[in-house]
Design a binder for these strands. Structure first.
Lengths: 253, 253
DNA sequence: AAGTGGTCTAGACCACCGG
DNA sequence: CGGTGGTCTAGACCACTTC
């Protein structure tokens, strides 16, 4: 029995469902409100739960919904505009309170990073982990790689790991003259490690921002930051910038 | 790629499967090679097809695989680094051969865009559609909004739509002095319209780059570009930049 | 026509959260 | 404990591409 027969040509059910739900979210729900549970929703629309879930997944990907196991599905607030521009915010070691959870250590970087840093394969570098907080919520997890050559004046460190060590490395890095940076953004999925830090399940989509800091013709440090793709909009504005809150789906018609 | 029996606490099957497949891709397959079909793969790993598909979806999201209905699943080439920096490439109207498929028209922009442009609600603006080509493949679809005030010297246009009209608008826009731009990047899913242009199915993940061009304190134009998230890595380098080809999954261990 | 990935179903059980 | 979303199954049919 075809429910709505006139329309849809051969549009997939989950796609049509997503559209219907999206419109309902705009008109009948407010931010933070809890939706009916998946089994009820599926029954109401006359589809299998898996199909309903496919629609919800899309909406979550677009930042419209937030789902939490054991709790329910809620209407998500608009995406947060997070600056990753050439601001003091993003500069490692700069005075800055939007980053937290500092932790330092020493480790062998992935070969791709080692090549960019110009370090020998298997050579240890300083690493600093930190997480970016916005409105009380973690939005990003960053891993900085700093070769020993970039922090020549680093005093003897007695703590092998921890926030103290991280702060010492950052302080010393800041003293060296960072002259510029290359950045790239791509889609990734969060690993088990960062997942906990970002309060998401493994596999959740993230925007991976890879930054190469250079001083002279040398790469002074490499940062790999993973931003929650569902809640973040990365802004690269040179100035404050006007907000253009666009629905991430559909751009023409 | 045998059925390794490593115990995994309570790691989901699809997650473990993804890891196994990922390693197999690195060691036993080369770019462009076709994988066995989903039914065979599922049988080989002793899981349901839906579970196998969940793993493949993740790998496709990370740009490791490419799936085409009616054809099969192939190993994807590394992501393409697409420059969206302050280069002549990205400047609308600049001499530039990486954009194609020009089409111009006049339309009422979405309210969010209209607010940024400072045009009245319901006021028509010039629009230019174009698609970005890289290595023969479409990687992005862009929609430019240009208010009439930004192209005062625009000659009378007899063609209501088409490439000619688009070129005329871009040429005139280029004559005005664009002074800067704000940019933001977020995750979205491609609509039915752009999907065809990007050779993807509707709902495929895209990186939505919203750019506001301004001249003086006025917004001269707004561009909404959707890049294929599976095949693209957006680069913002001020210089050419060193390639850091990082596996988009897992960044620490 | 044969083979591929894409959609959909109707169930089941599990992990997590709250009272 | 009950309710939520997360995982998984074993099937079915469809849309598309290729031969």
């Amino acid at each position: 029995m075809g429910t709505t027969q006139l329309e849809s040509a051969q549009e997939p059910k989950y796609w049509h469902l997503k559209t219907v739900l999206s419109e309902a979210l705009d008109s009948e729900f407010s931010v933070g409100e809890i939706l009916p549970n998946e089994r009820d929703l599926a029954a109401r629309f006359g589809v299998a739960r898996a199909t309903l879930r496919q629609a919800l997944e899309q909406l979550e990907l677009e930042g419209r919904l937030q789902r939490r196991r054991g709790v329910g599905t809620t209407v998500a607030p608009p995406r947060v505009g997070v600056s990753v521009g050439t601001t003091a915010q993003a500069w490692p070691g700069a005075a800055d309170d939007s980053w937290g959870g500092l932790d330092g250590a020493e480790a062998v970087p992935p070969t791709a990073v080692a090549r960019a840093l110009g370090t020998a394969d298997g050579e240890q570098v300083h690493t600093v982990r930190r997480s970016r907080i916005f409105a009380g919520r973690p939005v990003a997890a960053e891993l900085l790689y700093i070769p020993a050559a970039s922090v020549p004046g680093l005093p003897a460190i007695d703590t092998p790991t921890g926030a103290l060590r991280a702060r010492a490395v950052l302080r010393e890095l800041q003293r060296s003259t960072l002259q510029g940076q290359d950045r790239s953004v791509e889609l990734g999925s969060v690993g088990a490690d960062d997942a906990r830090e970002l309060d998401r399940l493994p596999g959740a989509p993230v925007l991976v921002v890879t930054t190469r800091f250079y001083a002279g013709d040398r790469t002074a440090a490499v940062s790999v930051a993973t931003y929650r793709a569902d809640t973040c909009r990365l802004t690269f504005g040179d100035s404050g910038g006007v907000e253009i809150h666009q629905d991430p789906e559909r751009h023409a018609s």
